[in-house]
């Protein structure tokens, strides 16, 4: 299911005190793809994604979710179906847990969207398995779990609604490396299951590895919409101007390019980068000196 944003603007307040947050946004979140939204804090990313499931209504323009059009005049009653189709995982979603057992909490969404108890339970169990929560925890209180486990339960709570599209706002924030990796795997699984995924992230390595399309936000406007292999070809200054990091392999490759290296394509990972470096050096001629200048930082 694609989501179309057409001429979207959004402001708080009215008249002279109105604060413009989003200005003339046009973009399409393609069905079955991963769209990353990046930009510095305060650029409007979070406000933008809250329009995708009608938590905020546009001040101007419209958002088309599947076959439903959301405008400033859409009635509260018409928003339910939109929210059933677009799941939203906020930053630190573990803060939304409330029920007395893990299973009940995960069943909350499906039940609200009209599933009966049995259907909701089946969906909840499926979602819990998908996020790797073992059955032994299902009857536990969510508040007895570790931070990482709570995060999974919260994710399951949105997955269980079986939405066509899912929005993740910094889903990996605060997780340790293993937790982050599992989360990225989950996003890829969702894509494989033909779900539409929107990801807000500050971690450009993730964006490069996962996204099909990147939306760069700045000051409430779209600064660029491109595939990552295109976007990260831009020069360094552009990223500085937009307060964005470069993925580490890309940044390193750009450094080496200043020293005569050439890269056929954007290195997507460390392995990719290493492969491209390998074939540009005559390794038989490389001898290892015993000590390298500056190699040992303490001496």
């Amino acid at each position: 299911m694609a989501i179309n944003i057409e001429g979207l603007s959004f402001h708080y307040g009215a008249g002279k005190n109105a604060k413009q947050i989003l200005d003339d946004i046009n973009l399409t979140v393609e069905a079955g793809q991963i769209t990353a939204i990046v930009g510095q804090t305060g650029s409007g990313k979070s406000t933008l994604v809250q329009h995708l499931n009608a938590l905020l209504l546009p001040s101007g323009g419209q958002v088309v979710v599947g076959d439903q059009v959301v405008t400033s005049k859409t009635k509260e009653k018409a928003l339910g179906p939109v929210r059933a189709q677009v799941g939203m995982v906020f930053q630190f979603p573990e803060n939304q847990l409330f029920a007395s057992t893990v299973l009940e909490d995960v069943m909350y969404g499906p039940k609200n969207f009209g599933k009966n108890d049995e259907e909701a339970e089946a969906l909840a169990k499926e979602a819990l398995i998908q996020v790797g929560m073992k059955e032994e925890f299902w009857q536990h209180s969510p508040f007895d779990l570790s931070g990482g486990q709570m995060r999974r339960v919260a994710l399951a709570g949105v997955l269980a609604m079986d939405p066509q599209a899912m929005v993740f706002d910094e889903p990996a924030a605060g997780l340790d490396p293993k937790g982050q990796e599992e989360l990225l795997d989950l996003l890829q699984e969702l894509k494989a299951a033909q779900k539409t995924v929107v990801l807000i992230s500050h971690q450009m390595d993730q964006v490069l590895a996962l996204a099909d399309q990147v939306v760069v936000m700045q000051d409430g406007r779209v600064a660029a919409i491109e595939a990552p292999d295109q976007l990260f070809l831009r020069d360094r200054q552009w990223f500085l101007d937009h307060a964005l990091d470069l993925p580490e392999p890309v940044a390193f490759a750009k450094d080496l390019e200043d020293h005569g290296y050439h890269f056929d394509h954007l290195p997507k990972s460390v392995t990719d980068l290493a492969e491209q470096i390998k074939c540009q050096v005559d390794w038989d001629r490389v001898t290892m000196p015993n000590s390298l200048t500056g190699g040992d930082r303490d001496e």
């Binding site: 390193f252 450094d255 080496l256 020293h259 005569g260 290296y261 470096i277 540009q280 050096v281 490389v286 390298l292 500056g294 190699g295």
Partner: peptide, 12 residues
């Protein structure tokens, strides 16, 4: 990172 880049640049 800087040291590694500097070393690699001597190889090219």
């Amino acid at each position: 990172k800087q040291e590694l880049a500097a070393w690699l640049s001597t190889l090219k």
